[in-house]
Design a protein around this nucleic acid. Sequence first.
DNA 1: GCCGTATCTTCGATGATTCGAAGACTTCGA
DNA 2: TCGAAGTCTTCGAATCATCGAAGATACGGC
Lengths: 111, 111
Amino acid sequence: MPHNARPVHEVKASLFRVLGHPARVRILELLRGGELSVGALRAELGLDSGGASQHLAALRQAGLVDARRQGTSVFYRVADERVFDLLEAGRSIISRRLSEQQSLLDELEAS
Amino acid sequence: MPHNARPVHEVKASLFRVLGHPARVRILELLRGGELSVGALRAELGLDSGGASQHLAALRQAGLVDARRQGTSVFYRVADERVFDLLEAGRSIISRRLSEQQSLLDELEAS
DNA sequence: GCCGTATCTTCGATGATTCGAAGACTTCGA
DNA sequence: TCGAAGTCTTCGAATCATCGAAGATACGGC
């Protein structure tokens, strides 16, 4: 019977906080297609090397990605496919919000 | 053909950022059982009235909860049941991480 | 109208995150 | 061993979120 120093909701919150940055969301989405090197990610994201490393470090610390070195390049992949469930749930909530807003606009226009 | 001022991943990130606070995660979990008044939430969370309102305001702005006033009390409910998918996906990722850590500990102990 | 209860907002201080620049480290090939 | 490419870390400045205290607002009962 372990003595849990950190309440569950705190751990959960810190997981969500890691996803709370556009660059990190995009990184995960890019990694959906398979592993990518930092260079490839940088090219897509338009980040400088420092910024890319910082965000990747955050994702690594959170245990969401794994890194593999090959020559001078480092390749990243998602560590747990379930992050995509998270992203998908997020997408679904947002798309619903947007379509509700759209309905409001339509009503407004029709009145 | 809308001109989208905000890239999707930014919207997504801000959704996750709202969940990036223990108190807000707990609020949503408490609301899983149905609507609750601010007073009831405060009692569970141990928050002062200012703090509770601030967090509830954040959730409201994000469109994750709706409020209903009845007398002097305000009752909150989740606006979109899918947030629970989000929380559930988070729980699942965390629980996997924990069980992996546990395996490591077991190995260590057995060696 | 006035009071008490419940909730919300605002404000300034404090703490955490992010950004950009600089330099350090690792690996490979010449 | 040296240099170049790729990645990582560190630092200070700027930005953003959070906390606690105080006052503002909304409602119902008297």
